[in-house]
Design a binder for these strands. Structure first.
Lengths: 132, 132
DNA sequence: CATACTGTATTAACTACTTAATACAGATAA
DNA sequence: TTATCTGTATTAAGTAGTTAATACAGTATG
């Protein structure tokens, strides 16, 4: 589990959910993979185990994960679930982005260039090491 | 002042600020234009005048607006201020968007198409009442 | 068995935000 | 003048949401 830099504005449990959402849509988790326990994650992130539990509850409700009684939670084994998550993720990003830029007077060409540049920038920041 | 649909997650005063930000970057406010009073806005939005005041305080601090003693606030008269606001607005949108899509495995071409489609969709929603 | 780990439920405490009640100084207009 | 509008400041109370403390039941391992 990598560093997670929490912002102070959004609830932590939502940021934890977002963290796992990214892992899921980024294919960084294997279907059926056993997840660390709530307490373990809490220790590593420096937050309360209940906050992790809150996040896990919602993820379980969304069927991202499943839990057998008194056993560590596991990632869903349904590939369609992940696919749906990816689709929703992209749709939301595109929708919000377009809504944003349509507020101001800017051409599609200008936007395309800004995006292309930003992709270069962010790629450079990673130095080509996409993995953790 | 149009309808503003507040979400229950974010503080109202921040949503009020965002509302004015959009108006500013969208050139919907004229430089130096007189704004409605805090009490008036509060009545129309169904919120407390102090909440509006909170928003206005921050906007004044950011120099989006200015206020002479005991007079209604006015939109900044500095075009560079608006320009800067627009730039920050676009930069933030692009940055967040690229960060989002880089999470998942998707090509630049696919993204471009999704954006183009979404622009069409959102334009249709406006019924073509967009400027030329 | 004992120990240390799971997940879960309940309840309390805390925090940020909002609301509210006032008050005051100055502007504006009848 | 008076009445009503501005913005601003202070203080207190209320509220919702988040986080935290704690306890309990079951599992795994020795």
């Amino acid at each position: 589990m990598a560093q997670v830099h929490f912002n102070s504005r959004d609830p932590i449990y939502l940021q934890v959910i977002d963290y796992f959402r990214k892992q899921l849509v980024g294919d960084e988790l294997i279907l059926g993979e056993e997840l660390p326990s709530r307490r373990q994650i809490a220790r590593q992130l420096g937050i309360n185990p209940n906050t992790v539990q809150r996040a896990f509850s919602e993820m379980e409700e969304q069927k991202w994960i499943y839990t057998e009684p008194n056993r560590p939670s596991r990632v869903t084994e349904d590939p369609a679930m992940i696919q749906k998550l990816k689709q929703e993720y992209v749709e939301k990003a595109v929708k919000e982005f377009v809504a944003s830029i349509q507020t101001i007077n800017i051409t599609y060409e200008e936007i395309s260039e800004l995006i292309a540049n930003e992709i270069k920038n962010q790629s450079n920041k990673n130095g080509g090491t996409q993995d953790d």
